[in-house]
Design a binder for these strands. Structure first.
Lengths: 224, 224
DNA sequence: CGATATATGGAGGAAGTCATTCCACTTACG
DNA sequence: CGTAAGTGGAATGACTTCCTCCATATATCG
């Protein structure tokens, strides 16, 4: 079932198909960087086409966003399903968190779709129903194997992911991997017990942390 | 140096002074709940006065926000200064984090002022210069006393606070204390080593976590 | 090559939001 | 009771953003 309104049997003209791809690429880039508030004019400009061309291909903004993020959201949902095959139950959980966060931290639009948007609400809801049991399984296994503290539940994890990816989005341009630093700290807090702390992601220059804050300041209008 | 433009020697008329207070109270409430994007019309409505009355008292929105948050921001800066007197160096650090977060989590406007706003930029900058050394001191003492892992630096803490208060603001209406749960996890991750995990803030019903997410969804338009 | 359906761009309409102002009216206070 | 001070809320104007129109351009096929 295509998302586009007019789906002919006839294929798109060659140049039109080229433009469609350019639009999707540009939209992915723009929404990842600026979030869903980005204008379709901005997307069009980034694609090197006019706005009308975007609207000819996608009935409205929601449809474009839907087409873009369906895959991405679904991919994250899948991560939880395939994680158990990744080493022991602790490693599986960590692997899932890292993979999911890597995607959400590099993509502001993705976080916004998952957390807050009214875009494709029903579809997101369906994904959530699928992802929750998979996370529960990861969590329960890591707990019964004695790795993960037993006072957390599956639902804690999407919340922690949201928290971290907020930071990730905020500092994406200045220090794209800064979030790993805090994920490590949180993971150290999630273990049942431990001796020495795990190695943190090292930030090249100490002052870069301050720079990250200042950058957030600059881009604030669009993020909050 | 007053913030208001017209500061007469003459005191305000009694009813005007009453209204000024009503406006400040209402603004505090509205900005805390909705963030700085709230309209001055909303503030006026909450105060039970007309917009013009707000403008008669404060030259513009920035001035109102400045008047409101100067104290709050300053108060947080002070927390870092007085923290050392609170028990040992670990307890001092924890006390500071809890107190600061309690304020930021209950007040969306406050986080927005600190993180991102263009409101009273210079003043915020000054506060930052004052707060950074105080935090560094807390951190260094907790490290040299062997409580706090030595691979974190002072600048990590504002970042973690931001992360947590983002969550706090998001879930403020559904579960106002939910953030404490994740602060505990992070604190457990910040200790040099530990045996059993610390007791988490317990959420009454398990499903409330999901409810928090759904609520975020609902209020998304205003938060992102 | 030339006919024609398809595709295009970017100006601009329409609808909204929100900070701020104006002014006819009201109220406190000496 | 006179008047300076204060007030409400409609109106203004400067945005922003989604989306459509249509004159022009281009691919495709006989």
């Amino acid at each position: 079932m295509s998302i586009e309104t007019e789906h002919h049997d006839r294929p798109l003209r060659a140049d039109a198909e080229r433009n469609r791809t350019k639009i999707l690429d540009a939209a992915a880039k723009v929404f990842a960087e600026q979030g869903l508030d980005a204008t379709l004019d901005e997307v069009a400009a980034a694609a090197g086409v006019g706005v009308a061309t975007v609207y000819r291909r996608f009935p409205d903004k929601d449809a474009l966003i839907g087409a873009l993020f369906d895959n991405a959201v679904d991919e994250i949902a899948n991560l939880a399903s395939v994680a158990p095959s990744r080493g022991n139950s602790w490693d599986a959980l960590v692997w899932f968190l890292e993979e999911a966060l890597q995607r959400q931290c590099a993509n502001r639009g993705l976080r916004e779709v998952v957390v807050g948007s009214t875009y494709a609400l029903d579809r997101i809801e369906a994904v959530k129903c699928r992802i929750a049991p998979a996370i529960d399984l990861l969590v329960e296994r890591a707990q019964s194997d004695g790795y993960l503290r037993t006072d957390v539940v599956g639902a804690d994890f999407p919340i922690m992911e949201m928290m971290i990816s907020f930071l990730g989005n905020m500092t994406a341009t200045v220090a794209p991997d800064l979030w790993r630093r805090y994920l490590t700290i949180i993971l150290d807090g999630l273990m049942v017990s431990r001796g020495a702390p795990s190695a943190l992601y090292v930030v090249p220059v100490d002052t870069m942390l301050g720079e990250a804050l200042r950058s957030a300041h600059r881009h604030a209008r669009r993020s909050l």
